[in-house]
Design a protein around this nucleic acid. Structure first.
Lengths: 336, 336
DNA sequence: AACCCCCATGAAAACGTTTACGTTCCGCGC
DNA sequence: GCGCGGAACGTAAACGTTTTCATGGGGGTT
């Protein structure tokens, strides 16, 4: 102590006023000298604020989540918030457990999980805690929602293929439970229908793995008449396709054009470079975090911001045989 | 309340005994019905345990950190610990701030930052808090250290190149401040000397970016006599080399062999597939986390485990012209 | 039948803050 | 000169747990 009561210390360090500039100065000096740090638990106990937000993600693996976390972290630290991460490895029960474990430890949730259907939300999300649902099409109005424009991106890709003369476009789907996939498939369908090709729907199931893309391409090569384009629901499957096609001696994009989704860093490096749909993932995370911060600050009469949809961007490279590849060899991929 | 005092509730929920099985049962039922969750701040206040560990990383970008966090998360959740992440974007001051901000909020630190020299540690790490330093060559004995065997990995790669007849091997270094790079360079040197090639040291500086690898390769092409192998301190630079060499019409590995370090996912997909040194990153994170948990549990008379060095693994693919590429086309890369 | 010990339970202190509420002191106006 | 207002600061309550200690009751032993 520096000849002063705990109350004054609190006031001095929090800068709430009610204390002379001089004593504030003195207290701060002493605090620094003593390497005093306020006990955050005690503070949280009385303040009911933890200055921490909890992120529940389906997995922490791969470029997607890396980018997402990065965006979230960026926005969080800009606001002086801490980030508590947790992955819910596939299992819905595990996700619920993780959510419960974070309960009370955080001021708000950032939730992205395939298990987040309405019942799950209802059951496991404490009403008073603000939450932003990422990429989760739940109609509820109690939580904010931030989505990727999967449908629009898929439409753009298919439209591009159609514009360049492709007519028999196969879509390689992903795991059925996945919302993104459903939306990408919807976009595929809409684009075909918009071009009077509704009857040409060709859908093969995959599971997001390179392997499944490889197998899908083999199946496609056996189809008659042979398709002239493949649109995979993600880049890894598209890359699997490229392998299979190369192995079979099929020319890409001459014989078959290939498009993916995500624009993972690798997409630029495969041969031929993969056309794909870029999602500004870090931006998605930032937006979600910003929304959440806003909800938290709004306090009692919480305002739930309207649904936000993160745009996508068609990245044309050699694999889809469109215009000259827009890939400049040594420009770093934007946003990556 | 269920006809019982707060003390009994505490005992029932924590299972410390001192309460009838019957009442414990009853209390738990009521708690579940009321969706009661203990206030973690209050608990931390008295327990002086947060059940949270703080991870300070230099960045959250890219495959490396994605893997690292994944490993950490895995080990953390296996022990029921929460994970607070923070990136210290480059700046040492920022790292210090982040560390201070986590102070008191966590039971232990996982620190990986290029700024973690001795002074930094001394200044910013609160002595009583357990900490594990990842990939940080600080001699202090107060903290545990977990490292990558950069030197051994580099030696293995260079030895492999020498074994296959290469004699003029260029090393492309990374940012000077980086510990990994220094060690990789040491390994390079040691391997050359061990083979009586100590006089053939050829080192070019890079900065870990693809671009710098590209430029380095151009420089190398101008050297006389021309080197017959390139060993880049990381995969991205190696990939930049491949681009430059392909552009110049140089045959890889015929004219020049190329090796990288990290085994990023992309390494398998470039052309030719890149030989590299794999680091089991997730394992590194897991080990670090386990050590930390061990230190935390050991309590007052904290035992600091001895330095642990995560092994590396030479991954031979086509780019180094060794034996037939060991890459099986559709086996998923192990550990990725 | 009396005593003792142990176990289940309750009461209360403690953890380290924030904040509402007093208290003191100073300066100013009447 | 007296009173009054306001600013600076101290006192103490409150936050929700855990844990120590006290209390009571039941069962076993002598």
């Amino acid at each position: 102590m520096a000849n002063v009561s705990v109350a004054s210390v609190s006031r001095a360090l929090n800068g709430h006023g009610g204390v002379t500039a001089e004593t504030q100065q003195r207290i701060r000096e002493v605090a620094a000298r003593l390497r005093y740090v306020p006990h955050s638990a005690a503070r949280s106990l009385i303040t009911r604020r933890t200055h921490t937000i909890g992120a529940l993600l389906p997995d922490l693996h791969g470029a997607f989540f890396s980018e997402l976390i990065r965006g979230i972290d960026l926005a969080a630290r800009a606001r002086g918030l801490h980030l508590l991460v947790s992955s819910s490895h596939g299992d819905a029960e595990e996700a619920a457990t993780a959510l419960r474990a974070m309960q009370g430890r955080v001021d708000g949730f950032l939730v992205m999980t395939p298990h987040a259907d309405e019942a799950f939300i209802e059951q496991n999300m404490p009403t008073p805690t603000p939450a932003v649902l990422i990429n989760t099409h739940v109609p509820g109005h109690r939580h904010a929602v931030v989505d990727i424009d999967d449908r629009g991106g898929a439409r753009a890709m298919v439209q591009h293929l159609v514009d360049h003369g492709r007519r028999r476009i196969v879509f390689i789907a992903g795991p059925e439970a996945n919302n993104d996939v459903r939306e990408r498939e919807n976009g595929y369908r809409e684009a075909l229908e918009a071009n009077g090709l509704g009857a040409n729907q060709l859908i093969i199931n995959g599971d997001f793995s390179e392997e499944s893309g490889f197998r899908a391409a083999q199946a496609i090569l056996g189809m008659n008449p042979r398709p002239d384009a493949i649109f995979a629901a993600n880049d890894m499957m598209a890359i699997g396709c490229l392998s299979a096609l190369a192995e079979a001696g099929v020319n890409v994009p001459g014989d078959i054009a290939v498009g993916g989704f995500d624009d993972i860093p690798m997409a630029r490096y495969v041969s031929p470079p993969l056309s794909t749909v870029r999602v500004r993932i870090a931006e998605l995370g930032e937006t979600a975090m910003e929304r959440l911060a806003q909800m938290i600050e709004s306090g009692e009469d919480m305002v739930v911001p309207p649904r936000h949809v993160a745009g996508t961007e068609l990245v044309v490279r050699a694999s889809c045989g469109g215009s000259a590849p827009s890939r400049r060899r040594h420009a770093p991929p934007t946003g990556a």
